[in-house]
Computed example of a mutant assay.
Amino acid sequence: MPDTLIFVDIPADDPSAAARFYAEVFGWRNDPRPEGVYHRMVPGGQFPNPDGTDSAIGNLHIGIFKADNARPHPRPAGVAPRGLSQDGRKPRVWLLIGDDDTPERILGEAAARGATELWRDHYWSTFNGYNHAFMDPWGNEIILWGKAGAAPAIPDHFTRE
């Protein structure tokens, strides 16, 4: 069996506020471990089988860690760097838009809570998806992915590649 991805962690200078942001924008359960230091965000549900029923595989989680003392670490005080990265490329987090949700709602809720909309309405033919993106208040780039389907009707105003 290959090595398995189980978590992706994103930094914040205020993990409690970041956890509230993600709970309010996406409806995820906030699981502080402990409050203000590390928060596991639990989207819930299971990955679906091809027939739409739940598989035995749980959805991936996102962790939010305190940038000035990333845990776990062998040194109790952690190590540098202790600030949020503001310049240059960073990892991006891709989220599949649920069938009962819309990118407009997500982008609006995120912006209302301090996020910056980066772009919207883009079709990526390589993976047949509609994409939109925002930067959360802590500088993390979130890309929303919408399924385009077997014969996508790409709106004229969408950019394409």
Rank of each mutant, 00 (worst) to 15 (best):
P72V: 04
A110F: 01
A12L: 03
N128D: 11
D101Y: 01
R29H: 08
S55Y: 12
T159K: 13
A70Y: 09
G149K: 08
R105I: 09
G58N: 14
S85V: 10
W28N: 04
I143H: 05
L95G: 04
P81W: 02
R40V: 12
P152V: 01
D156N: 13
T53P: 02
P2G: 13
E104A: 15
E24C: 02
G83Y: 05
Q86G: 11
A153C: 12
D99Y: 13
N140S: 14
L95W: 07
R92H: 11
F65A: 12
R20G: 09
S125V: 14
I154E: 07
A18F: 04
M41Y: 07
H157M: 11
E117A: 10
I64M: 04
A151P: 00
P103T: 11
E117F: 03
F26M: 07
H157P: 07
M135D: 08
V25R: 01
P103V: 14
F21A: 02
V37Q: 07
I10S: 03
G114Y: 09
T4D: 15
R71G: 06
A23K: 02
P34N: 00
G146D: 10
P103N: 12
L96C: 13
L5I: 14
I64H: 03
G114M: 04
G146E: 09
G27T: 03
P15Y: 00
P103H: 15
Y38F: 07
E109M: 03
S85R: 11
